[in-house]
Amino acid sequence: MTLFNLTFDSLAGYALAKLDFWGRDKLFLGFISTMMIPGMVTLIPVYLILVELDWTNTYQGLIAPLIAGPFGIFLFRQHFKSLPSALGDAAKIDGCNEFQTFYKVYLPLAKPALATLGIFTFMGAWNNFQWPLIIANENEMYTLPIALFAVRNQYFAAWGLMMAAALIIVAPVLVAFLAAQNYFIRGMSLSGMKG
């Protein structure tokens, strides 16, 4: 899910920052306005859509609603807007098309934004409790936070077992953060700069 989020959010952010098309600013305003809508409001309509698609208790149902997000699009748009347009013009003079300009010129410069969004998305998806609990019906489809909840209910006196399970659940998040820590800190410091 993190890879999908990084891919689609970076493409949308690039399009909203560097491409000139009709309705671009209104579309961006629409994305930003969706950040003000709580997730609880959209929970039932999204669930009903997935029921119609017969995606309940499937990996598609777990992943599809969280494949892109307005925060990531906003983050990438601001990052790409801060980069000079002369880089893209030079790439086009050298014969790059729009996707090559994005992939070979702008995306390598977006490593701090990629790391920042990657950590946020991974942590959010890894710790997500509510959506997998609603969309999954079988134990095989449950994520680790739901499994920890099940262990807590089943073995309410086994605190050692619960702490061991919690450590196993937290370990990948710590590894991901430590692996991308330098880019994450750089991305957070660059997001406060004005271009």
Score class of each variant (00 low, 15 high):
residue 34 T to H: 11
residue 92 K to H: 07
residue 176 A to L: 03
residue 92 K to N: 01
residue 137 N to Y: 04
residue 142 Y to I: 12
residue 99 F to C: 14
residue 154 Q to F: 10
residue 91 A to L: 08
residue 90 A to H: 12
residue 122 F to L: 08
residue 86 A to E: 01
residue 60 Q to C: 04
residue 53 L to A: 11
residue 82 S to V: 02
residue 150 A to N: 09
residue 18 K to P: 14
residue 169 I to C: 04
residue 98 E to L: 12
residue 165 A to T: 00
residue 24 R to Q: 02
residue 85 S to G: 09
residue 82 S to Y: 08
residue 145 P to I: 06
residue 62 L to M: 11
residue 82 S to E: 00
residue 3 L to P: 03
residue 43 L to G: 08
residue 51 V to E: 00
residue 88 G to E: 08
residue 25 D to Q: 13
residue 168 I to H: 00
residue 105 V to E: 03
residue 30 G to P: 05
residue 127 N to F: 12
residue 161 L to T: 15
residue 53 L to H: 12
residue 28 F to V: 02
residue 25 D to Y: 07
residue 136 A to M: 11
residue 143 T to Q: 11
residue 12 A to P: 05
residue 39 G to W: 00
residue 89 D to K: 06
residue 157 A to C: 07
residue 182 N to K: 15
residue 50 L to N: 06
residue 81 K to R: 15
residue 149 F to N: 06
residue 52 E to K: 01
residue 22 W to L: 13
residue 40 M to K: 10
residue 107 L to H: 07
residue 117 L to A: 00
residue 30 G to W: 05
residue 19 L to N: 07
residue 16 L to K: 00
residue 95 G to W: 07
residue 52 E to Y: 02
residue 138 E to T: 15
residue 58 T to Y: 04
residue 41 V to E: 04
residue 181 Q to R: 13
residue 103 Y to P: 07
residue 65 P to K: 06
residue 89 D to I: 00
residue 84 P to C: 02
residue 63 I to F: 07
residue 43 L to A: 09
residue 104 K to M: 13
residue 108 P to L: 03
residue 109 L to I: 09
residue 189 S to P: 03
residue 155 Y to Q: 14
residue 38 P to G: 05
residue 96 C to N: 08
residue 2 T to Q: 14
residue 168 I to K: 01
residue 127 N to P: 04
residue 192 G to K: 00
residue 125 A to V: 14
residue 144 L to W: 10
residue 190 L to N: 15
residue 60 Q to N: 09
residue 162 M to S: 14
residue 78 Q to A: 13
residue 135 I to W: 08
residue 22 W to H: 15
residue 98 E to T: 15
residue 18 K to Q: 10
residue 77 R to G: 05
residue 25 D to L: 08
residue 143 T to E: 09
residue 124 G to W: 10
residue 180 A to Q: 06
residue 34 T to Y: 04
residue 51 V to D: 00
residue 10 S to P: 00
